[in-house]
Amino acid sequence: MDPRLNIIAHRLENVDRLIAVSGGKGGIGKSSVASTLALCLSKKNYRVGLLDLDFYGPSCHLILGIKGVYPEEERGILPPQVYGIKFMSIVYYAKENPLTVRGIDISNSIIELLAITRWEELDFLIIDMPPGIGDTTLDVIRLLKGVEFLVITTPSKVVLETVKKTLEMLKEAHVPILGVIENMKLNNSSWTRQEIETFDVKYLGEIGFDRSFEDFVGDRNKLLKSSFVEDINKLIPNLD
């Protein structure tokens, strides 16, 4: 018997909402949205945690400019609090090295992190998911009861086709879908909105393509002044 599985629910019993930021493809802004959403919620005085589960390409720490912190060991692991966010990531242990692991190792690492991390009381735990609907998505659905999915797409037809597969999979598994955010919006086209709505999923809104986004990466203060943050703040009321 695996003693870790049973303790996960206890570790999260004082977390009000678990939101997994997901999407089919890489490079569509999942980590940017997850990190910025956590930052914006924290600025609104919510108690927020951010868990980066993208083990092959962890990047929340890069986006928020988090460095030089390490979890405290106290009857488990206490995530360091940075900018008001309790932040947990594999980078504490993997450093900047590539992690070359297969599915079973991904599952075991997720279970270990969830079993030992003491989040204590949180209003939101934002989870940055890797691309796709493989091991991590299946484990999050299996292990995190009550998790809600926030799905990111872009105006790209190719991305939307993959996002549809994610939505289909989540619906079949009866997992709550908060809705879809259209990131990197370039024009006024309502095509993505129409496609999402025919799928019977809420279109939560859009984030404009921010050409200067790279200038904000790693600089929380600049990020907070960006149009990206402005758009995220507009979307937050739609998460209820």
Partner: peptide
């Protein structure tokens, strides 16, 4: 004491089995 978190898992699982 990271061991504590895993020990809690052992006890919780044992209580559940009992």
């Amino acid at each position: 004491m990271h061991e504590w978190a895993l020990a809690e898992g052992v006890i919780d699982t044992t209580v559940k089995v009992s």
